[in-house]
Amino acid sequence: MVVKGIENNALTIIYEKYSKRLYLYLLSLCHNQQLAEDLMQETFIKAFMSLDEVSDGIVQWLYKVAKNLFIDTLRKNKNIISEDEFDMKTISDKTDILKELIAKERNRRLYYVIQQLPIKERELITLYYFGELKQEDIAQQMSLTHGAVRTSLFRIKKKLLKIMEEE
């Protein structure tokens, strides 16, 4: 079966490749696991239904669709943001539980610190590290210059380091 010129197999590959990154991005925006999951699913549905309109790369386009869906949801319901705890990592190696617990706690603290950033900074850092977008792509998506993205990422990393060291 072909959907607008793309085989189902290709759609599955795109979903498997980008769903986790997209979920983390949406989670960083809404702070709600269930909502992030719902928005991610809706993003792929909308994206796959309008694939013929893609002019940019598929990744940037998915992030754009996801952000627009989040903004629409935020406008409809002002109470969607919650402080749900996010479990960044499950313990998989029982032979080294202490090491895993330390890493898990560090990830939770980092996640918490990132969530305290202003939304623009949070979005930049999430797109770059979790979304694995290039600085040029982030600049285009957020209507910034490449230099502004590079400088902002440097400052945000410095800010995060300082906060983590203070703790």
Rank of each mutant, 00 (worst) to 15 (best):
residue 96 D to G: 06
residue 128 Y to F: 12
residue 89 K to M: 10
residue 43 T to E: 02
residue 141 Q to D: 07
residue 53 E to A: 05
residue 77 N to T: 13
residue 48 F to V: 00
residue 151 T to P: 08
residue 99 K to P: 03
residue 134 K to P: 14
residue 119 I to N: 08
residue 50 S to A: 02
residue 86 F to M: 05
residue 114 I to Q: 09
residue 100 E to K: 02
residue 31 H to K: 14
residue 132 E to S: 06
residue 6 I to E: 12
residue 9 N to Y: 14
residue 9 N to I: 15
residue 153 L to I: 13
residue 165 E to I: 14
residue 160 L to D: 12
residue 142 M to I: 07
residue 59 V to Q: 08
residue 151 T to M: 15
residue 112 Y to R: 11
residue 74 L to W: 09
residue 146 H to K: 09
residue 73 T to A: 15
residue 121 E to C: 02
residue 47 A to C: 03
residue 118 P to Y: 08
residue 159 K to P: 06
residue 55 S to D: 12
residue 115 Q to I: 07
residue 69 L to M: 04
residue 46 K to L: 13
residue 81 I to W: 09
residue 139 A to M: 06
residue 107 N to L: 13
residue 54 V to H: 01
residue 60 Q to C: 14
residue 72 D to N: 04
residue 156 I to L: 12
residue 146 H to A: 05
residue 83 E to K: 08
residue 91 I to R: 00
residue 83 E to I: 03
residue 156 I to D: 10
residue 164 M to S: 01
residue 138 I to Y: 01
residue 104 K to E: 09
residue 27 L to W: 14
residue 84 D to K: 15
residue 107 N to C: 00
residue 111 Y to W: 15
residue 3 V to S: 01
residue 101 L to Q: 07
residue 161 L to Y: 08
residue 124 L to P: 10
residue 160 L to H: 07
residue 8 N to Y: 13
residue 44 F to E: 08
residue 100 E to L: 04
residue 61 W to D: 09
residue 57 G to K: 11
residue 98 L to C: 02
residue 85 E to G: 11
residue 149 V to T: 04
residue 150 R to C: 09
residue 68 N to W: 10
residue 166 E to K: 04
residue 69 L to Q: 00
residue 110 L to G: 07
residue 157 K to A: 06
residue 73 T to C: 08
residue 132 E to C: 08
residue 103 A to C: 08
residue 89 K to H: 09
residue 35 L to G: 11
residue 92 S to E: 13
